[in-house]
Amino acid sequence: MITISHYLAVGAVLFTLGLIGFLTRRNLIVMFLSAEMMLQGVAINFVAFSRHHGNMHGQVFTLFIIAVAACEAGIALALFLSLYRKKRTLDVSVWQDLREAGIDETTDAQPLTTTPEDADPILTKAGIAPKRPLEETNV
């Protein structure tokens, strides 16, 4: 039988993966998605407790989580757009001037390996171009 503990375990895994994503990724958007995934883990916990206790309070809390997540998404995406306008990148590390005083700047030691971009395919013409009918206008 699937009990509440199984759902709590799945919620814990989602929360942890979101936490790791938030800590390691440097793209602002992926960081924000990771934070949303932590909220999903918590939402599973709330709904599972709601089922366990047989009342609706847990589901109400999840509804509020969704509302707050929507607000968060709106504000955060507006912020990302204005940050992108200033520095032309979504990398958080370009904003590390905001770090605590007395901490060294982190630099990226290893160079990025550039993968050659695939060139756009060029289509060779084949066959005879069909005659197009004249466009009819009623103007």
Partner: peptide, 15 residues
């Protein structure tokens, strides 16, 4: 809107 071409620090590095 903020798509960028080529490799970027944001996507190819982890902190």
């Amino acid at each position: 809107l903020s798509h960028q071409n080529g490799p970027s620090n944001a996507d190819l590095r982890s902190r």
